[in-house]
Simulated assay, not measured.
Amino acid sequence: MDFVKRLYERFESLVHELAKFGSIGAIAFVIDTGLYNVFLLGLEWGPLTSKVLATTISATFAYAGNRYWTFRHREQSGLGREYFLFFLLNGIALLFGLLMIGFAKYTLHLHDGLSLNIANFVGVGLGTLFRYWSYKKWVFLEATEPIPVELPESGIKQDR
């Protein structure tokens, strides 16, 4: 058991970061999949248009969750820079989904909702792996200085 404890202590921050990333990702997945099906099956829009719109909305949620919760301990390099890179990388990850859905519909000629959802799930899985790696590498950078847990003392004594 001592080995497991040491192993956990060594990777504790990574485990917590992955848990947070997974939580935000799970909620974004529900938003993405739910909206994809509303657009595809409810409004009867095309599968690629439905995917682009659903991903844009879920990625906006994911940016806020990842910036202000998952990666809040990392350096903040500017909202404009992070936001641009985040959506650029999400656009690349979206290509995985579009390729899977396009392959299912236009190459395999599978037009039913179940087949298109399976293709969507595969694309989301591949895109998630890419997103986690790319966010850590380019968007939410390692802090160059430790980020304080508490606010610094102001030097002014307060009466209690």
Rank of each mutant, 00 (worst) to 15 (best):
F87K: 02
L53F: 11
T70D: 03
D32H: 12
N117K: 04
R74F: 07
E75D: 11
E150Y: 13
L99I: 13
I31W: 00
A62S: 15
L89W: 10
I27Y: 06
R160H: 11
Y36W: 10
L129Q: 07
R160A: 14
H73M: 11
V124G: 04
G46C: 04
W133Y: 15
A59F: 01
Y132K: 01
W69I: 00
L110A: 12
K51R: 14
Y135T: 03
F39W: 03
L85E: 08
V15C: 09
H111L: 10
L88A: 14
H109Y: 06
T60I: 12
L89E: 03
G91M: 06
S50K: 04
E82R: 05
W45N: 06
N66H: 13
L151N: 12
L79S: 10
L40A: 03
I101T: 02
A143D: 04
A64D: 00
D159I: 12
D32C: 06
F39V: 01
L99M: 07
S50R: 06
M1H: 11
A62F: 08
L110N: 01
R131K: 15
L14T: 14
A119D: 03
E75C: 05
G22L: 08
R67K: 14
G113P: 00
L79K: 06
F86S: 05
L110V: 07
I24V: 15
A62H: 07
G91N: 10
E17M: 10
V30G: 08
F140E: 02
F61W: 11
M1G: 08
F29L: 11
R72G: 09
F29N: 00
A19G: 14
P148I: 10
T60H: 08
Y132E: 00
Y68A: 02
A54G: 02
G113W: 09
Q158S: 09
A26F: 15
T107H: 06
I57S: 04
P148W: 09
L43H: 01
Q76F: 09
K5L: 08
S58M: 06
L7S: 14
L43Y: 11
R81M: 09
L94C: 05
E153W: 12
L88Q: 03
W138E: 07
T33C: 13
L43D: 04
G25A: 08
L18Q: 08
W138F: 15
V124Q: 03
S77R: 13
L98Q: 11
N37F: 10
T107M: 01
I57N: 02
L53P: 01
E44N: 15
E12I: 08
F121T: 10
L95R: 02
P47M: 04
T55F: 13
N120G: 06
T107Y: 07
T56A: 15
F86I: 14
E9H: 11
G42H: 05
E44G: 10
A64C: 07
Q76A: 09
L116N: 05
F86R: 07
L126R: 03
V149W: 10
